[in-house]
Design a protein around this nucleic acid. Structure first.
Lengths: 346, 346
DNA sequence: CCAGTTTTCCAAACCGCTTTGAATAGCTTA
DNA sequence: TAAGCTATTCAAAGCGGTTTGGAAAACTGG
């Protein structure tokens, strides 16, 4: 069913039918009703491609999902982020276009979005330190919103981010308050912006208490379960083992926990653990009593906010261009006071 | 840069330029080269919307991601499935369109894909028993491939699936061989097709050994970590507790493990555990020695295969329309013989 | 050298919608 | 009742490509 066919059925011109359906004032209420009824009856919906060719708007938003070329890893938070963003898109009539690209070849994905003209805006994922994609997108002139921020960039851009520094600073202070002095940091890849900020928070808290951050206690890597496990085993086997571990992802935390228990120790008693929790839907941190003490912020909510911001930008609506979400610190069973033994001897 | 502009620069007609770029034979090799060079130099790429309006092909494939309306849960396997499919799409020039929809309203998503004409094909996720979407899509007449199958449907359709029944039958047999007699099943939602097949495999293995499946040992629910944990605790607290547990997802298995250990028992010694492993990228089952004994099949590979099959169908290429992937059974540390104590008294 | 092919290129129509500019119909108002 | 508005409707021109049906140019061979 095309517009022309429908207009023939109605004995009207395509012009009038189009206007009736799009709510233009130059059409009488009577015919508008008649047209709407006929459209519904015949199941007419405008052909997206024709419409967007005519209007110049694609009514679609692009996401570039980077796959780490080395480890073929897809970030588990994407699922929930996209679920949140998708909600907002469909409410506003936008489609979501996904492009899965090895992260050493992302430029071409953005370029092709632009030159092929099939999206009106982009969400930028997983920004790094001084991310080159930001100047790239600025020069290409397509609206975009960054999920996260990019330290050391002077260019300006719209973003939605969690206050990673504050979150990890608070978490570290909390551990310090419990008497821990040797606290390990198991972080994401070190060029990732969120990892940089979390580390900054961690170091700031230590320094404020007169403790010099120890490079031997700080780790960066891809946030898999295995990484958490392996690191923990080596860490705890050291003579000068940490009494607490601060972890950047729930999934890694599970590995850390496994490591702790394999060593015959107990989480929350022998070793304390705080993790960041993105509130992934299939991995709720205990509905009743949280298993893990965690800095918590819903990535799905971030998805909603980023999507809304992008739509606002595209429609030239006036609204904030920077949103900083605070993570709360939820108390779980994975933290406890540094035991005298540990606290004393170390 | 539009086709017309480019053709003006070259002093050629749009027709010729279009043909040159699309590899038609009616253009001399010399001009083809000249055109290609100019296109590259000026960064010309055809406008997707205009092109697909003209050709009638959208060059895009739709995925409908259902969000369980009740639990707002997004299936963790989507990320990896989509990563696999995306690879194949981009290699073939297709875009991927995602529609995130509450699972009580999926019909409208498919219908809108069709009426708005913005995809050439669809991948159907998470099929259920006698899934109504299959007849719907058959009547709509849009090419599609199902990731999974739908029991009890007489309609025919193209699919890529894991041999779930065989996998769980083998796993159950393996546990039986180890002397286990009371084996619990922690499955996905019971209307999901994969869950039905896995249960069938489990029951078949038991029955073949003269054991009547015990309804008190079979559970169905959303596959979260919490569910695994909670079920395990109640199960193991029973007087007649199972000595082995068969689990449908790695994430649930983690919860089961947590439950086991909280009860002061050891996985692989006091309680055996086999899980299905989709080989999620951030949750590899131990690179060296697998932690879990598991029925294993890469969901990313399934994504690749499903995408390729769909493209073959859309391009009327002759290739299989049904792919059954066998899961292998990898031996890990989570299984062991039923201890005499357990095997004897129960 | 010329009719018959084959190559190479082009003008124009079309895909399905929106939008501009103009025409028609229906009301007012003087 | 004619002139002047306003409320409706429509024809036609795009949007940026592809594709059909020729036409011109370049090659054949007799």
């Amino acid at each position: 069913m095309t517009l022309k066919e429908l207009s023939n059925i109605l004995g009207l011109s395509p012009t009038t039918v189009s206007r009736a359906l799009n709510g233009y004032p130059e059409v009488s209420e009577a015919t508008r009703k008649r047209v709407a009824a006929a459209a519904r009856e015949h199941g007419y919906a405008p052909n997206t491609r024709a419409r967007s060719l005519a209007t110049g708007r694609a009514m679609a938003i692009g996401h570039v999902i980077p796959i780490s070329a080395k480890h073929e890893m897809v970030n588990p938070v994407f699922g929930d982020f996209i679920a949140g963003a998708g909600e907002v898109y469909s409410r506003n009539g936008y489609d979501m276009l996904l492009s899965v690209v090895p992260d050493d070849d992302e430029d071409s994905a953005y370029r092709s979005f632009i030159t092929k003209r099939n999206v009106d805006g982009i969400i930028l994922h997983a920004p790094t330190l001084n991310d080159p994609r930001i100047p790239l997108l600025n020069s290409l002139g397509l609206p975009y919103v960054v999920h996260g921020r990019s330290s050391d960039t002077d260019a300006s851009y719209a973003w939605v981010d969690v206050n990673n520094k504050r979150a990890f600073q608070r978490a570290t202070e909390f551990l310090l308050d419990l008497g821990h002095r040797r606290i390990a940091l198991v972080n994401g890849l070190e060029h990732m912006d969120f990892a940089i900020r979390r580390r900054a928070g961690y170091e700031a808290a230590l320094t404020a208490r007169g403790i010099t951050p120890d490079a031997a206690l700080m780790f960066a890597g891809e946030m898999t379960e295995a990484q958490g496990h392996d690191l923990t085993r080596t860490l705890l086997a050291q003579p000068n083992a940490p009494t607490a571990i601060l972890v950047s992802s729930m999934i890694t935390a599970i590995g850390v926990r496994r490591g702790i228990e394999e060593m015959g120790l107990r989480m929350g008693r022998d070793v304390s653990l705080i993790t960041h929790d993105d509130e992934l839907s299939y991995f709720r941190n205990g509905a009743d009593i949280p298993v893990y003490t965690a800095t918590r912020s819903s990535v799905r909510d971030a998805g909603r906010k980023a999507a809304q911001m992008l739509i606002d930008i595209m429609q030239h609506r006036d609204s904030p261009r920077e949103i900083l979400l605070e993570a709360d610190l939820t108390l779980g069973l994975s933290t406890g006071p540094a035991t005298p033994l540990h606290a004393g001897t170390r």
